[in-house]
Write a protein that binds this DNA or RNA. Structure first.
Length: 289
DNA sequence: TTAGGGTTAGGA
DNA sequence: TCCTAACCCTAA
């Protein structure tokens, strides 16, 4: 159906990166019409540029792409061409995504016994939001973000997961909103009565219930559950803190690498200039020297 | 014109 | 079968 997909060539990607470098992200029309890039990008619309940049951004965050998950370490400007100045421009790597478990550890939504973390989060959100006409993606996304560490493109992922849940009849779409199907909601609520299962998820459900005022009557089990929940939440907070520190270390490491690369470039320029070579700004920007 | 959500083709 | 890149649609 429709025109066959037109894969982006490396020249086109390069032109896009340079265009963003020159005009900034969001100036897609300007980039597309720029005489410097228009020959390469003639077959692409401004929308294409935007979409491609979006994909590149996701790739740079360590997500999704098979070939450009990491910003390669810039080499010294030798004879081999290096696209590093442009790559450095890509949106900063989001370490939250790196810290998250790989996507491939997910289970199929059909697997009722051990739903994947993301499916669980979505089902949990829909189960607790309980909006009669369903919840919009933004609402679900916000709900999950408040409770879980999510990757930067989670919202987009959420849409895909929701579609899959619709496909397996766990979720239904009402206008632009999503809600659990009646049949699934009933099945999902049943295990809640099982105390062993309740204990497992005590941390989150207790926190959530507190927030929403679901527990109105005091019970001995509730006290124990709350105590356990507090400890689990405490442990989670510490784990999160440790994660953040790890990410900070990684970020600083990357900055050091980038700085080192700039230093090498500066040394190269200095040497060449010392030898009396004349280099234009354009040559330096494109490393064509 | 752009951003963002949604859809679909193609590859692993 | 699942995931991603490319493409499409629509609101602002």
């Amino acid at each position: 159906m429709g025109a066959p997909k037109q894969k982006w060539t490396s020249e086109e990607e390069e032109a896009l990166r340079r265009g963003v470098l020159k005009h900034g992200a969001g100036k897609w029309r300007t980039i597309q019409k720029d005489p410097e890039f228009s020959p390469v990008l003639s077959s692409r619309s401004n929308i294409d540029l935007k979409d491609k940049w979006r994909n590149l951004s996701f790739s740079a965050s360590g997500l999704g792409s098979r070939d450009k998950q990491r910003v390669p370490r810039p080499k010294a400007p030798s004879s081999s061409p290096s696209p590093s100045p442009q790559l450095l421009l890509l949106p900063a790597t989001n370490n939250v995504a790196e810290a998250s478990p790989p996507e491939d550890c997910e289970k199929s939504p059909q697997d009722d016994k051990t739903p994947s973390p993301k499916f669980s989060m979505i089902l949990e959100a829909l189960g607790e939001l309980k909006e009669p006409n369903g919840s919009e993606v933004t609402t679900i996304c916000n709900f999950i973000e408040q409770r879980h560490e999510v990757q930067p493109n989670f919202r987009r992922l959420l849409c895909a997961k929701l579609r899959r849940l619709i496909g397996v009849n766990k979720v239904e779409k009402i206008d632009k909103s999503y809600k659990l199907t009646d049949s699934y909601a009933k099945r999902a609520l049943a295990p809640m009565k099982d105390p062993s299962l309740k204990k497992k998820d005590s941390a989150k459900s207790s926190k959530a219930a507190k927030g929403q005022g679901l527990f109105t009557a005091a019970s001995p089990a509730l006290g124990a559950a709350e105590a356990a929940a507090t400890k689990v939440a405490d442990a989670e907070a510490k784990s999160h803190l440790a994660n953040e520190h790890m990410m900070e270390v990684e970020r600083i490491g990357k900055m050091a690498e980038e700085t080192e690369s700039l230093l090498e470039l500066a040394s190269e320029l200095y040497e060449r200039c010392s030898r009396g070579e004349v280099l234009t700004i354009l040559q330096v920007a494109h490393r064509e020297f």
